[in-house]
Simulated assay, not measured.
Amino acid sequence: MTSDDRGSSSISTDEGPRSLRSEDEAGPRQKRKQLPLWQETILLLGVALVLAIVIKTFFVQAFYIPSESMEPGLILNDRILIQKVSYWGDDEPERGDVVVFKDPGGWLPPNESAGPSNPVAQVMAKIGLYPTGGHLVKRVIGVAGDTIECCDDRGRLIVNGKPLNESAYVKRIDAKCNGPMPTGGKCDEKWTVGPIPEGHIFVMGDNRSRSADSSQKMCRPDETECVPGDEFVPVDLVVGKVFVLLWPADRFRWNTRPATFEDVPDPSS
């Protein structure tokens, strides 16, 4: 074999490695195409809107105090947050909880049931960033099976035979007891209610003589058009439990269940 033959059979140095050649042919890696700023803004707003609706529906919602009925703890125009997790599934409100519930019918005057009239406020209310109308906030005094009496010789409500020490949160100014009949805040009328039907609660405001609550809906002996049972609030109408007083900032505090209800016996006891 001659040197020419050997030269003809040698591998040409003009061909580079295949891997290098294929990368050269592919060219530079293309960058991911980014959305214009206005499209990103709309997308982010949409995601925020969905999250806000989900949070309002399942977790937290904002409300405000529309009257003096929950003084001294909650006063007019206080902003509160309610949480809904406590009442998921079969869990229901407990004695002492401060709850927000939908108007069972005729508890609120028309102007308080209407809700916000401003279009912006209406949109914000839908996503839980502004209080909605047609709701009340009260304290749960009795649950299903309970019997409530007014009152012992010290003016205390009695639940299942147990007097309640409510001095930590009840406002007593022109009333001599913690369970007055709403007409004039008088305490010379004794009353008993219960057993509370299944799936219902009995609620009262902390400002007992200035609260349109379950005690106002009880039938009195001289009434002929009263419907027995209207004093109870269906649990299905409860939106959630107040867990924080959010605004004004100098009144910020967490809301907890009073210890007085821990000693109330079960109805069957």
Rank of each mutant, 00 (worst) to 15 (best):
T192W: 03
E198R: 15
S269I: 04
W107K: 11
Q39W: 10
A168P: 07
D153C: 00
E15M: 06
P182C: 05
G240A: 06
P110I: 13
L44P: 05
R220M: 13
I65H: 12
N111T: 01
D222V: 10
E225K: 11
R29V: 04
F63M: 05
V159W: 03
W88N: 15
L74V: 11
D4K: 12
M218A: 02
D213C: 05
T2D: 14
V193C: 05
T183S: 03
C187I: 06
I201N: 06
K126A: 12
S69E: 00
D236V: 06
R6K: 14
V159N: 08
T13W: 01
V227I: 12
E149C: 01
I201P: 01
K217Q: 10
L237S: 14
R18H: 08
S167G: 10
A52N: 08
L157M: 10
P195A: 05
I75W: 00
I65D: 14
V98Q: 09
P93H: 08
I80F: 01
D152W: 07
D236N: 09
F58T: 12
T132Y: 01
L246Q: 01
R18Q: 07
D250T: 00
L49N: 04
G89S: 09
D5K: 11
I53T: 06
T57Y: 05
L237G: 02
E23D: 10
A259D: 11
C150R: 04
E23N: 09
E23A: 13
P221A: 13
P36I: 11
F202K: 08
R172L: 15
K56P: 06
A62K: 15
Q39F: 09
V99A: 12
W254V: 14
I173S: 14
Q39G: 10
V227L: 10
P66R: 07
V140F: 02
I42M: 06
D263G: 15
E166Q: 15
P131T: 02
T183R: 00
A121T: 06
M124Q: 13
K102S: 10
M70P: 11
P109G: 04
